[in-house]
């Protein structure tokens, strides 16, 4: 092998006799679980910062709190709440999957199956939430 090495994960032209370690993105269930956990985690973190500040307005005045919380009740923010709840539900179920994979050898072996169970539970939960929420948002 040449002295210069590449850090970009390009596919080898012929099967390598020494496969590189786990630093390459492999595009399988485990990678998507990790990527989605990160993205949803960051999104939820920044919403939490804003949400603590907007809730703190109850200490300013009823008018100030109602003015800001009223913006959460518009159709566009209603759709944003669907995205937020979707992120939270995925992060919650996938987080439980991570715990199972960490502590239970069966789950470690079957982490791919568990990823699809997370997706299925996410779909079921969102089917319960989204219609109800959109009815609240788009009705008067």
């Amino acid at each position: 092998m040449s002295a210069t090495t590449t850090r970009t994960p390009i596919a080898p032209e012929k099967p390598a006799t020494h496969k590189p370690g786990g630093t390459l993105y492999r595009g399988r269930e485990g990678m998507w679980s990790w990527v989605l956990h990160r993205i949803t985690g960051v999104a939820i973190f920044f919403f939490l910062l804003v949400h603590i500040l907007d809730t703190a307005l109850v200490r300013v005045s009823p008018e100030a709190y109602n003015a800001v919380i009223g913006t959460y009740q518009t159709p566009i923010m209603g759709l944003g709440e669907v995205a937020l709840v979707g992120a939270i539900v995925f992060h919650a179920f996938n987080g439980l999957r991570v715990i199972l994979v960490d502590f239970w050898s069966w789950a470690t072996r079957n982490q791919k199956v568990l990823f699809y169970i997370v997706i299925a539970l996410w779909v079921v939960t969102m089917l319960g939430f989204v219609p109800r929420h959109l009815m609240n948002v788009f009705s008067h």
Partner: peptide
């Protein structure tokens, strides 16, 4: 994380699913 699943899901259910949901939230 385990405790937050319970706390956050309860928070979301009471504030977004019960009654008028997000429309009912005010001071």
């Amino acid at each position: 994380g385990v405790v937050l699943v319970v706390l956050v899901f309860g928070h979301l259910f009471v504030n977004l699913m019960v009654g008028e949901g997000v429309k009912a939230i005010d001071f």
